[in-house]
Write a protein that binds this DNA or RNA. Structure first.
Length: 648
RNA sequence: GGCUGGGUAGCUCAGCUGGUUAGAGCGCUGGUCUCAUAAGCCGGAGGUCGGGGGUUCGAGUCCCCCCCCCGCCA
């Protein structure tokens, strides 16, 4: 079977970040898995280098555009090389073969009548390389995507008849429910297409850094729209429009994209392919974003995760394991050193690494490091069966891109191993003279580790190669067939003593990201939790003194305060109300008060409010504050009072 | 505002077409072994399944209303 896997080509307007790494890790894992199980596999990545933005960035740096593109492109390629990404080709849209291929495609679409010449007038955002209709612009004519100013551009342009493909696309989505993954994204695309598709302007005359139109059209002023240019890379890489050398890999099996560029890949791209009479890829798979410590990453906050830095401190494959294991495909993930460390310690050190050490230790003591599978089936048929049952369930997860589930299931094999050792206690058997039984248990675990390593190989290629080496075999398609498909066992071997593969990590190894106070502070209405209660109690806006005193307001001293992750509004406070334990109060005041500034100060707290959960945390009270258009002001005692003093 | 998806243990989530005491991993906690990376194994605590109505012999699972969160579109 032929299997073609692609990442998007990355735009060379900035350096690689965790998002690029994530996409590439997934794609690499898919490619490695595909090769392991014996598929003929082609894995493509590369860089997208055309467009006005690149031209301008190069000018700013006073560099020829090509040199600028060369440099940034190289940073991506170098990073992937450092990460041992197993790409078969690194395409660049400035490659001559690519340009030729795109021109061939353009010619074909034109000949078919899918591309025609007209005029385009509209508000153009240089940064996003996109025209926006008047109705979509923000105040002052700014771009709805990036917020930068747009300019009115009228230019001669060629158009692609996207409207013609509205119906065929909808039919295709309908007939191929697995085309767009995950499903939630599919709904978005369908509803977008149902809203109607306009023809797409696919050439520009306002700049020149792009693929020129085919000579046959004699249009030297025009260059191609970057997205037409860029999307075509997936087939020009296989030789479309040139030597066609690898076109038998088309259609692609999985084309990975970030959720931000799904629309281009799920609408424009299949429409282009239909126009070219090429089959559509099996899956367009959109993954989510990463945040850090619950916050969006941005350069201005200085909390961007540098994949190189993480890998230097924690190990590239550990990082990679973490990303694959932590997040269901399509969902956003959160990177934190704590989460990474927890994963490494509990999954890698405790379950996997320690298990290997256990059998190294035993075989050294009991059999001079010799491991023989001869008696495994005799004494451990059950464990072996259980493990094979687990291994047999794994494959679909990979095809569904559910790598986190894949790994979760795979880990059951290590659990079987750890339990088997416990249950059969080889150290006891040895004392009883039942050496063959003890050694069978060791051999069982060696085989479990071997099998699991094979299945983990796509995610952690180097680490699993080390394990395999220690267990006297090599991870290849042959050993996959032998150990997994045919449920074979390891030949007798001498186990190699290796130092712990995953030393436990106790403390964060990297400097923490600066805790950014939300500097943009969007004006959002604070949720007044008790608005409704007050209004129901207060008929006609008047209450009795008794009703008022139903509310217990007390003076509290803030002992501790910290930002609530994933929330721009909330602070978590620990407030002393003179009770045995301080109250935890989640207060929506973060936009106006920093956590530090509150510690040690006094506030007024509604003490008998029914506890409520905010962002999953219990809030045992409400801090009183006054609010107007200027913002929020906490109500505080004029002079310090004892914690717990009542107000009224 | 319109349309998706979702709100289940401290955290991250599983729970197919409604059916015994609602599950997993991590975390917490009690116990225990000693081959091992203070790892492993066994046990435990912890959930009015967002709220309210309804259908049903029976609802986390179906219907209606409401609240909240993410996303897409306006």
């Amino acid at each position: 079977m032929k299997n073609y896997i692609t990442t998007p080509i990355y735009y060379v307007n900035g350096e690689a970040h965790i998002g690029h790494a994530y996409t590439t890790f997934i794609a690499d894992s898919l490619a490695r898995y595909s090769r392991l199980i014996g598929n003929e596999t082609y894995f493509l990545t590369g860089t997208d280098e055309h467009g006005q933005k690149i031209e301008e960035s190069a000018q700013k740096q006073n560099k020829p555009t090509q040199i600028f593109a060369d440099e940034i492109s190289a940073t991506f390629r170098n990073l992937w090389n450092e990460f041992d990404i197993s790409y078969d080709q690194f395409i660049r849209t400035t490659d001559e073969t690519h340009k030729t291929g795109v021109q061939a495609a353009f010619e074909k679409m034109y000949a078919k009548g899918d591309i025609y010449k007209d005029f385009y007038e509209g508000n153009y955002c240089v940064s996003c390389e996109t025209f926006f209709p008047e109705s979509q612009l923000m105040d002052g004519g700014c771009c709805p995507d990036c917020g930068r100013a747009t300019t009115i551009v009228k230019e001669e342009s060629y158009f692609f008849r996207l409207s013609k493909y509205e119906k065929p696309l909808l039919d295709y989505y309908e007939a191929h429910p697995e085309f767009i993954l995950p499903k939630s994204r599919r709904n978005e695309v369908i509803s977008f297409v149902r809203g109607g598709l306009n023809d797409l302007s696919v050439t520009r005359t306002s700049f020149s850094w792009g693929v020129h139109l085919p000579a046959s059209l004699n249009e030297p002023k025009h260059v191609m729209y970057v997205w037409l240019d860029a999307l075509m890379n997936y087939v020009t890489a296989l030789g479309y429009g040139t030597d066609e050398a690898n076109m038998d890999f088309w259609p692609a099996n999985v084309q990975l994209v970030g959720k931000d560029i799904l629309r281009f890949h799920a609408i424009y791209w299949p429409a282009f392919l239909m126009s070219l009479d090429l089959p559509l890829p099996k899956h367009i798979a959109a993954h989510g974003w990463w945040t850090r410590d619950g916050e969006k990453m941005s350069k201005s906050k200085g909390n961007v995760v540098d994949p190189r830095e993480v890998s230097q401190h924690y190990g590239a494959e550990n990082f990679r394991y973490f990303m694959m294991r932590e997040v269901p495909f399509g969902q956003d993930g959160d990177f934190s050193q704590r989460a990474l460390i927890d994963r490494m310690n509990s999954d890698l050190s405790n379950d996997l690494g320690n298990l290997l050490n256990r059998i190294i230790g035993m075989s050294e003591k009991y059999s001079n490091l010799l491991v023989d599978s001869a008696d495994v089936e005799k004494f451990h048929a059950k464990e072996l069966n259980d493990a094979h049952a687990v291994l047999a369930t794994l494959e679909p997860y990979f095809y569904e891109l559910q790598l986190h589930r894949y790994l979760e299931e795979l880990w059951k094999v290590f659990s079987i191993g750890n339990k088997a050792i416990e249950e059969h206690a080889p150290w006891v058997k040895i004392k009883e003279g039942r050496t063959d039984e003890a050694l069978a248990t060791v051999a069982l675990v060696a085989n479990l580790l071997a099998k699991a390593s094979v299945m983990l190989h796509a995610i952690m290629p180097k680490t699993t190669a080390t394990i395999a080496d220690a267990l006297g075999f090599e991870i290849t398609t042959e050993s996959y067939n032998d150990l997994i498909i045919h449920k074979g066992l390891l030949k007798p071997f001498t186990i190699k003593k290796v130092p712990p593969l995953f030393p436990r990590v106790e403390e964060p190894l990297m400097q923490e990201a600066p805790k950014a106070m939300s500097e943009e502070a969007p004006k959002v209405e604070l949720k007044q939790m008790d608005d409704k209660k007050v209004s129901t109690v207060a008929e006609e806006g008047v209450i009795t003194i008794d009703q008022f005193f139903q509310t217990s307001i007390k003076i509290g001293t803030v002992l501790n305060a910290q930002e609530v992750p994933k929330s721009s509004k909330l602070l978590k406070l620990h407030v002393d109300l003179g009770e045995e334990t301080p109250r935890q109060i989640i207060a929506g005041i973060r936009e106006y008060y920093s956590a530090e500034s509150l510690i040690g100060t006094q506030v007024c707290v509604v003490a008998n409010l029914k506890p409520a959960k905010l962002m999953g945390m219990l809030s045992e009270g409400m801090v009183l504050a006054a609010k107007d258009s200027e913002g929020l002001s906490l109500i505080r005692p004029e002079k310090p009072r004892l914690s717990g003093s009542s107000v009224g």
